[in-house]
Nucleic acid binder design. Structure first.
Length: 430
RNA sequence: GGGGAGAUACUCAAGCGGCCAACGAGGACGGACUGUAACUCCGUUGACUACGUCUUCGCAGGUUCGAAUCCUGCUCUCCCCA
C-alpha cells in the first residue's frame, strides 16, 4: 500500500488531516469521497484538485468515491460568498451527473473489477425521500446549534460585518453535507472525506455526526486552495471559467491556460496536476531554471493535463494551433492549412460574415474592422488601431490604405483579422 | 424627524461662467523590448461623412451671447444629531 499522505505532502496537496489518518490508510484499503457540484454539465479546472486527490487515492490502492451533490447543490454552501443556488430539476441533475461521470472517468477507473474501482453516488438519491421531520429527528438532534454556529462559515455570515444575512436553508447546509458522510460511512464503507481547505468545517460536522450517532470514526483530509502568484483567481481566464468540456473551453484554450502559467505557479502546478513522479519533476524544475525562456514546465503541464482531459488528437491540434498563432507563421502558412484545421485553430474566435461581392470589389480596412463587422466598437477605434500599427490581415501588418481582395482569402472563404498579438477576428465570406 | 456633504467618462478623482471632449491616477488596449512572461519605455482611451462637426459631466427645467460650472424642482448616495 503506497503512502497516500506522503504522496500528497510532497506534491503540496495536503493542507490538513485529522490525527491518525495516515495510520488508518496504511492498514488496508480504505474508501474516501469528494463532493462535486452538479449545477453544470461540466467540471472546470477548479475541480481538478479534488479530482486529482481521488485519482492519487486510487493509485495508492484505495477506493475513491465521487459524490455528486444533487441535494447539497440545491442549497448552496455558505462558506463560499455565493448566494443561494437555484433548484435543479431531476432530469437536468441526471444529465449533469452523467456528464460529470464521463469527465471523471478520464482520471478515475470506474469500470474495472478491481476492489478499488471508483464509485459515483448522488446524495439526491438518499436525500430526496428523507422527510423534514425524519431529518430533524434522526440527524438534527445529534448536532447542537452551538456547534454549528461555531463554524467560521456560519460565524462570518452572522457577524455584524456581513452585509447579507443567512437563510435557514444555508444554515442547514453543513448538516446535510455532514449527513452525506454518515450515510456513506454506513452504506459505502467510506471513512474519509476529502476536499478543499474551505471544506474543513463541513467535513468535521460529518465526522462529529458519525461519532455521535454510532460511535464511529471518520477522517478528514483537505488540500490547500490553489492560488496564483499574481493574486488573480485560479481557473478563470478572460472568458470566465476554464472548463473540462471541449465545447465550453476548446482544447486549444485549455492548453493555453496552462502554458501561460507563471514560472512560480508552474512549479506548484506540475506537482498537483500531473501524475509525474518526484524525480521527473525535480529534474524538470532544475532544467527549467537553466533555460526559463523555453518554459519546459508550462509545456509539460499543458501536455499532461490536456492529454488526460482531451486526448492525443486534441492535444496535437492545440500544439499546432499554438504554433500558428504564436510562432512566426506567415500568410502562406495560413493558406496551406486545410479548412478543418483552420477552423479548429480558430475555434471560438469571434466572427462575422461579409458578402463575396464586398471582397471582390476590395474591402477597405475601416469596413472590415468596424463598419461591416463588430470586431472593433467604432470606425474611430478602427482608424486609431490602424494608426497604431496594431492591425494584421492574415498575420501581416497592414496600413489604413490596405484593401482586402480575393487573393487574401484562406480556403476561399476566410480572412483572419488581428488586433495586436492576441485578439483575433474571423471574417467569413459567403 | 433635524442638520450637513455629494452625484463628472471603465474606476478613483480634478474642474466651480468662456482657454473643456473636460487635469491627474489606476485600469484597459496598442507599439518597442521579451519567454505567447514580468519589468521598463512610448502611444491610445465619446462619436462621426475627422485640421471640422455632433453628443456628453445624476434627471428635468431655467438664467446667460455662452453652463460640467449659476438658479429651481426631482431622484439617489453618504455623514452627523434625534
Amino acid at each position: 500500500m503506497k503512502n497516500f499522505i506522503k504522496e500528497l505532502q510532497w506534491r503540496g496537496m495536503l493542507h490538513d488531516s485529522m490525527p491518525t489518518t495516515e495510520e488508518h490508510l496504511m492498514e488496508r484499503m480504505r474508501s474516501a469521497y469528494v463532493g462535486f457540484d452538479p449545477t453544470s454539465d461540466s467540471l472546470h479546472i477548479g475541480n481538478l484538485v479534488p479530482i486529482m486527490l481521488l485519482a492519487h487515492f486510487q493509485r495508492c490502492g484505495h477506493r475513491p468515491i465521487a459524490l455528486v451533490g444533487g441535494a447539497t447543490g440545491m442549497i448552496g454552501d455558505p462558506s463560499g460568498k455565493s448566494s443561494e443556488r437555484n433548484l435543479l430539476d431531476e432530469n437536468t441533475l441526471r444529465y449533469n451527473q452523467e456528464a460529470i461521470k464521463g469527465q471523471l472517468s478520464h482520471f478515475l477507473d470506474f469500470t474495472s473489477d478491481a476492489a478499488n474501482a471508483a464509485v459515483l453516488v448522488n446524495n439526491y438519491d438518499w436525500m430526496k425521500d428523507f422527510s423534514f421531520l425524519e431529518f430533524i429527528r434522526d440527524v438534527g438532534k445529534h448536532i447542537s446549534v452551538n456547534y454549528m454556529m461555531a463554524k467560521d462559515s456560519v460565524k462570518n455570515r452572522i457577524s455584524s460585518e456581513s452585509k447579507e444575512g443567512m437563510s435557514f436553508t444555508e444554515f442547514t447546509y453543513q448538516l446535510v453535507q455532514g449527513y452525506d458522510f454518515l450515510h456513506l460511512y454506513q452504506n459505502n464503507n467510506a471513512s474519509i472525506q476529502m476536499g478543499g481547505s474551505d471544506q474543513w468545517g463541513n467535513i468535521t460536522t460529518g465526522t462529529e455526526l458519525i461519532r455521535r450517532v454510532g460511535g464511529g470514526k471518520g477522517y478528514a483530509i483537505t488540500c490547500p486552495l490553489i492560488t496564483k502568484s499574481d493574486g488573480t483567481k485560479f481557473g478563470k481566464s478572460e472568458g470566465g471559467n476554464v472548463w473540462l468540456d471541449a465545447k465550453r473551453t476548446s482544447p486549444y484554450k485549455f492548453y493555453q491556460y496552462w502554458l501561460n502559467a507563471s514560472d512560480e505557479d508552474a512549479e506548484n502546478y506540475i506537482k498537483i496536476f500531473t501524475f509525474l513522479d518526484k524525480e521527473t519533476i525535480d529534474a524538470l524544475i532544475v532544467e527549467h531554471k537553466e533555460v526559463p525562456h523555453l518554459r519546459l514546465l508550462q509545456k509539460k503541464i499543458g501536455e499532461e493535463v490536456t492529454l488526460l482531459v482531451h486526448g492525443t488528437a486534441a492535444y496535437e491540434n492545440a500544439i499546432k494551433a499554438s504554433n500558428i498563432l504564436f510562432g512566426k507563421s506567415t500568410a502562406s502558412d495560413l493558406k496551406s492549412l486545410d479548412e478543418q484545421t483552420f477552423l479548429d485553430v480558430f475555434d471560438g474566435v469571434p466572427q462575422s460574415t461579409v458578402a463575396l461581392s464586398e471582397v471582390e470589389n476590395g474591402l477597405d480596412m475601416i469596413g472590415a474592422l468596424a463598419a461591416k463587422t463588430n470586431f472593433l466598437a467604432s470606425n474611430g477605434e478602427a482608424r486609431r488601431a490602424l494608426k497604431e500599427n496594431a492591425i494584421s490581415v492574415n498575420k501581416e501588418k497592414v496600413k489604413e490604405d490596405f484593401t482586402i481582395s480575393k487573393e487574401d482569402l484562406i480556403a476561399n472563404k476566410y480572412v483572419l483579422l488581428q488586433r495586436g498579438k492576441k485578439t483575433y477576428y474571423l471574417l467569413v465570406v459567403a
